[in-house]
Amino acid sequence: MKELSLNILDIAQNSVKAKASLIEIEIDETDEKLTIIIRDNGCGISKEILEGVTNPFYTTRTTRNVGLGIPLLKDACEQTGGSFEIKSQQKNEENLISGTEVRASFFKNHLDFTPLGDTVSTVTTLIQGSPDIDFIFSHNKCGSKVFLSTLEMREVLGEIPLNSFEVIKWAGDCLKEQYQDIVK
């Protein structure tokens, strides 16, 4: 992947497939470190499968037998000296809550650090593709914050679908303006 924002898009699609109703994407950034957290309330992953997901030869797809999404992200962070972690919980007698959390940390000054890229497009693409799922996006950078929540948007919009062109455009512009303030 050319940008980490593409890895984020890819991993978030797994949450969509896990039938999540809420997907949170959090980016925490300091001068030297960048951490990406993708958290969902989807169906979760069983212990047996969880052990295998970082293996590039594991996939749930039926079209072929290799899955690269998680190994690609794991590689991208580990090649900078960073760390990767995936936690997941399925519903059972003791646990009524299910979900998955992927956490990847990168050292930004490492030669092999992949740039974060266009996170705005990633968020608008996710909303466009899954208008019935809620997304909470936040990017914290040295004390400033970029934030978007479709929960808030939905409250204002009522019955208007989130994948309407005007709405997607508003979401993109809203994020872009906040990023401009961060850069200043």
């Binding site: 593409l6 898009l9 699609q13 497009s121 693409t125 466009q128 062109f165």
Partner: peptide, 23 residues
């Protein structure tokens, strides 16, 4: 197509181009 393969090959700008041009 927006799976790992599509995204890595550049599907995101293709999707956005369709969305914008159709509008």
């Amino acid at each position: 197509g927006m799976a790992t393969c599509g995204i890595a090959a550049g599907a995101r700008p293709v999707l956005n181009a369709f969305v914008e041009a159709v509008e």
